[in-house]
């Protein structure tokens, strides 16, 4: 599904190497988690994959279902099936949540040569999906993320993911700013989307999200590289002993 090879990335504005050779393959139907200390390059990886400005790939490749991601515009990557759930979802005053989502869904469909969704069909689907995430009609009408609480913003991300039905989902610290109940709600939303054709990359600091979204593979990232890969037990080890042991072990 997602194949990252020897990815090297530096900041465009300054001569600072952030990713120093990341190798990672996420198979369809699998959930991979990336954990790692602050500044290890986890969020940079998610931004580079989704096409944010400000980063320069100096070496390596990233492909989604065999297609070169790094060669595509941001919106082309989305239409190809890549989805990033933002750590800090952006507020967009003046653009209604519904308008935004319908525009996005239909833009992606159009880009893939599929038929656009009618207003009636869209309404039916979004109401159903919003309900399971406890997003009410009022939230759907409001401008995108404006005045939303931290939990509401993250639920809104998952709603977008559910509507867009991407092939590959990257969740960037989706647990940050969430209380236990909100985290459960978000995790349920993610779990509902798990299926054999979809891959997940869950970026997190803490093991607790992984109690709710059970990963198949756990990677530890440090200083721009993946330094250790294992099963779910690796996350528990981090929770118990911190990163220090692992860092020492590979050093």
């Amino acid at each position: 599904m997602l194949e990252i090879k020897n990815l090297h990335v530096k900041l465009e504005e300054e001569d600072k190497q952030i990713l120093k050779g990341v190798d990672l393959t996420v198979e369809a139907g699998k959930v991979h988690a990336i954990m790692g200390p602050n500044g290890s390059g986890k969020s940079t990886l998610s931004y580079v994959l989704s096409g944010k400005d400000g980063y320069e790939v100096t070496e390596g490749s990233a492909a989604l279902e065999g297609k070169d991601l790094l060669d595509m515009d941001v919106e082309e990557r989305a239409a190809a099936g890549l989805f990033l759930a933002f750590q800090y979802p952006v507020e967009i005053p003046g653009v209604g949540n519904m308008t935004f989502l319908r525009t996005a869904v239909n833009a992606q469909r159009k880009a893939r040569g599929e038929e656009e969704m009618s207003s009636a069909e869209f309404l039916k689907v979004i109401r159903e999906k919003a309900k399971s995430l406890k997003i009410d009609a009022e939230m759907l009408k409001r401008p995108v993320n404006v005045g939303f609480s931290g939990g509401e913003k993250k639920r809104n991300e998952i709603l977008q993911m559910a509507m867009l039905e991407p092939r590959m989902c990257i969740l960037d610290e989706t647990d940050s700013g969430l209380d236990v109940d909100a985290m459960k709600l978000v995790a349920d939303g993610v779990n509902a989307l798990r299926d054999s054709g979809r891959g997940f990359l869950v970026i997190t600091h803490y093991q607790r999200l992984l109690d709710h979204i059970k990963p198949d593979v756990v990677h530890i990232m440090a200083d721009g590289r993946i330094i250790k890969t294992g099963g779910p037990e690796l996350a528990l080890e981090v929770e118990k002993n911190g990163y220090a042991d692992i860092l020492a072990e590979v050093a």
């Binding site: 989704s50 096409g51 944010k52 400005d53 515009d73 941001v74 919106e75 990557r77 989305a78 239409a79 990033l84 933002f86 979802p89 952006v90 507020e91 967009i92 005053p93 003046g94 653009v95 308008t99 935004f100 989502l101 525009t103 996005a104 869904v105 833009a107 992606q108 880009a111 401008p143 995108v144 977008q160 867009l164």
Partner: peptide, 23 residues
């Protein structure tokens, strides 16, 4: 930031700029 967010959801740049302008 808003432009990137909209594009990351698949809204083409031009449409995203228009949406933000109307907003």
């Amino acid at each position: 930031e808003g432009l990137f967010y909209l594009r990351a959801r698949g809204v083409p740049r031009g449409t995203a700029e228009d949406l933000l302008t109307i907003a």
